[in-house]
Design a protein around this nucleic acid. Structure first.
Lengths: 236, 236
DNA sequence: CGCGGCCTTGAGTTTACTCAAGGGAGGTGG
DNA sequence: CCACCTCCCTTGAGTAAACTCAAGGCCGCG
């Protein structure tokens, strides 16, 4: 990871140049805590296409995505990476492996040039043992993750593909103002695989929704015409 | 929750009679920390069939199942509760809602008489702010939960019903000694719904596995005849 | 013995997948 | 500027996995 991959280099605590958006990752922080994290953090840059880590790799540090886009999922030799999740910075990239067994449970690959920071677990534990309020922030972040995963699991188990797509579209507007126009930020095949369906099925469902007048799709731009109806479908 | 449901009564900090198995829930604890938790904990008893909480109910406290069996999932008026998960004490019953938004994300129903303890979130936060090592134990527990959910999500997205069943059977023996005999602890319909399939499909798959000589099933007793082959199926 | 749950089995149907072919957008080189 | 290539999305046809509905059997219980 170090001498082998020259372009994926650690820049120890690059505080002058790099502002890590801790509040976006952890919520509001005391500035002393933010500085303590900065002191631990190691920034890394990776070019588009780089595989950041693989399942079963040692995971000695939490990894946060500061900027760029990363697909997490399952690497298969012929097919490339099947995305179970696509992250846009800032977001946590590896949150649980380092806590649990020090192994990653995922493959991750950069879809754009990306900037990550790593928090080595051992020093982090020591820090949290001294700064309990900061520890609570990590618990909160983990709990949000649990919550998110539970609702995805629920959807996958009980909703058909159409309902999942409708729910996904609705969710894209959560905490967003009026405008009902959505610019898709990922390849449709990645959206499909995050929703647990094939690209063909996604395509057909998009067509079906627009034929029924619920949405209008043009390339990567999607407009919601009937939010009410869409929410109805998402229930089922 | 108090005056309304007389048989579901809080017995404040019943330390003399009730030994809460904190180590099973949180890992090894300093005895002072265990005592502090005991001081917060409220024990509750509920008879078989009682619905413990519902989705969107306020979740002011973490809930741990001390003893008994609880199904968590999705309540539907005609069908009863579809189990997304069945818990056997000791285990965490409501771990994330209280941290995140103070709402439950699940319905939960007792399948036997059960004993639970609740840790009110506000005092707990205050305690963890004073006892950082205890806070780390909660982070660990949350991270384990994330890890578990991620792997379930992965299975649901990428494995067919047969592979999921094979993987589930293998998982039942994780951290268990030699004997390859399994006593099913839940109704088959609950096992099926946890695996994201119908009872009919589970039944057919069980038959198919035993026809192929991989397992032998007799009522609620299951014997693994070909662990190797079973693990092979679980991969796919 | 009769009743109520639960599991099993069968038949038919639906949903979503696979495979294969076609079309559009963007980039590169002649 | 156009030809060409590549990558992705779309569409169609056929298939397979899992679901629904309905009937039958087993077991424990009153």
């Amino acid at each position: 990871m170090n001498a082998i991959a020259p372009s994926y280099e650690a820049t120890q605590a690059a505080r002058p140049t790099l502002q890590v958006p801790w509040p976006a990752l952890l919520g509001p922080l005391a500035s002393a805590d933010a500085q303590a994290l900065d002191a631990l953090a190691q920034a890394r840059y990776a070019p588009e296409g780089r595989r950041l880590f693989s399942r079963c790799d040692a995971a000695p540090a939490l990894v946060a995505l500061v900027d760029g886009q990363v697909a997490c999922g399952w690497w298969q030799a012929e097919r490339g990476l099947t995305a179970e999740r696509v992250l846009h910075g800032p977001a946590w990239l590896a949150m649980c492996g380092p806590w649990v067994d020090g192994r990653h449970g995922n493959d991750a690959q950069a879809q754009t040039a990306v900037l990550t920071v790593e928090l080595p677990m051992e020093p982090l534990r020591a820090l949290l043992a001294r700064q309990p309020l900061l520890g609570l922030r990590f618990s909160d972040a983990l709990a949000r993750e649990v919550s998110r995963l539970e609702s995805r699991l629920h959807e996958l188990m009980h909703k058909d593909a159409g309902a999942r797509l409708a729910a996904w579209i609705c969710a894209q507007f959560a905490g967003r103002p009026q405008p009902s126009v959505l610019r898709l930020a990922e390849r449709k095949r990645d959206i499909a695989s995050q929703l647990g369906m094939t690209p063909e099925t996604l395509s057909r469902l998009m067509r079906s929704l627009s034929d029924r007048g619920l949405i209008a799709v043009s390339g990567y731009t999607l407009r919601v015409l009937d939010p009410q109806g869409l929410r109805g479908l998402a229930e089922a």
